[in-house]
Amino acid sequence: MQAFTKLTGIAAPLPKANVDTDQIIPARFLKSISRLGFGKNLFANFRFKEDGSENPDFVLNQEPYRRAEVLIAFENFGCGSSREHAPWALLDFGIRCVIAPDFADIFHNNCFKNGVLPVRLPKEVCAQLMEDAKLGANARITVDLEREVVVRPNGEEIPFKIDPLRRHLLLNGLDDIGQTMQHAPAIDSFEARQKAAQPWLYA
């Protein structure tokens, strides 16, 4: 997994609540067996018209937001399906950070597994950052995970909090399977105890 430390880039405003994972990547595009290549269909139902041409009204089809690395949205971002293809699509497009008032639980987990940073900030702060983002290329936003601050284009710093374990894994780009494997003896003894007490769970 790619580490996330600090990012300064263009932010795209998406002033919507309940952006579900069917919007982020519609199910008809989930047929790949790779983690790559989903970016071209990110927000496909918004980005493209029925004839396949681009919808010029959608923010990610406008300059400079085609190069956005941060996305700012409203409440309950990532609700719906558990598909990890949603953070894969964001990442493949180039978006490394999503800022919203809150996130659906499974999407929130999935982001951390892929080097995408979900930042929770109050709704009024998100609204303010969207106004900043509307200034386009002149308004770069910095997201600093080390210091846990978002820096507005005017230099104002907004603090945020990330779970310490997740922050550690993300800062170092660590795969947590390797970490868990170190607990193998504890897993072995759990299984031995459970098998004695609940033998029907073991074939």
């Binding site: 558990s82 598909r83 990890e84 953070p87 499974i106 987990n109 999935n110 597994k113 892929n114 779970d163 374990l165 947590d176 399977i177 868990t180 494997m181 607990h183 193998a184 897993i187 299984e191």
Partner: peptide
């Protein structure tokens, strides 16, 4: 019973556990 993403699927396949709060 709850849904998980693909990275967690891999984690469960390998370790039969999940890291959860």
């Amino acid at each position: 019973a709850f849904g998980i993403g693909t990275s967690e699927v891999e984690h469960v396949l390998a370790t039969q556990t999940l890291l959860q709060k």
